[in-house]
C-alpha cells in the first residue's frame, strides 16, 4: 500500500489535492505546516510527498533540508508552489525535489503525475 503525504498551509488546497487523488485509492495524510510534516515523515514512510513551498514557520525547502536523505531514496517529492521563478526551481531541485509543479495546477495533471510516479 503506497502512502501519500500532502503538506500545505491552505486548507482549501489540501482539500483539492486530496480530492484530486482520492481515485488512486491510497491513503493520503495531510500536514498543515513543516513541523507537522517533519514529525510525520520521521515516523512514517511515504512514497509521495506533495509539498508547498511557502508555508509560515518553515518553508518546504527548509523541511527537505532537515530530512535524512537515506530515508528518502524511495520517496518522490513533488513541489507544488506559487513560486514560479527559475531560481526557486533550481533551489528546489538542489534540495531534492523530483518534480516541480506550479500553482495554479490542474488536478487531473497532478493525478496523472502521481500515478506515473507510483506505477511508472
Amino acid at each position: 500500500m503506497k502512502k501519500i503525504l500532502v503538506v500545505d498551509d491552505e486548507l482549501v488546497l489540501r482539500m483539492l489535492i486530496v480530492d484530486s487523488l482520492e481515485d488512486l485509492g491510497y491513503p493520503i495524510t495531510e500536514a498543515e505546516n513543516g513541523h507537522q510534516a517533519l514529525k510525520l515523515i520521521n515516523e512514517n514512510h511515504y512514497d509521495i510527498i506533495i509539498l508547498d513551498y511557502m508555508m509560515p514557520g518553515m518553508t518546504g525547502i527548509e523541511l527537505l533540508d532537515q530530512l535524512d536523505p537515506t530515508r528518502m531514496k524511495k520517496t518522490s517529492i513533488v513541489m507544488l508552489t506559487a513560486k514560479t521563478q527559475e531560481k526557486d526551481q533550481d533551489q528546489a531541485k538542489g534540495a531534492g525535489v523530483d518534480v516541480f509543479m506550479k500553482k495554479p495546477f490542474s488536478p487531473l495533471a497532478l493525478y496523472d503525475l502521481i500515478e506515473e510516479l507510483l506505477h511508472g
Binding site: 491552505e10 482549501v12 488546497l13 483539492l16 480530492d19 484530486s20 511557502m54 506559487a82 513560486k83 514560479t84 521563478q85 506550479k102 500553482k103 495554479p104 495546477f105 490542474s106 488536478p107 487531473l108
Partner: peptide, 24 residues
C-alpha cells in the same frame, strides 16, 4: 511581487482546481 504572485496563485489554484473537478 513575489509575495503577491504567491498570494494570488493560492486562491486561483482553488478556483481553477475545483472548477476543473466540477467539469471533469
Amino acid at each position: 511581487v513575489s509575495t503577491v504572485s504567491h498570494e494570488l496563485r493560492t486562491p486561483l489554484s482553488s478556483v481553477l482546481g475545483f472548477t476543473e473537478m466540477l467539469l471533469v
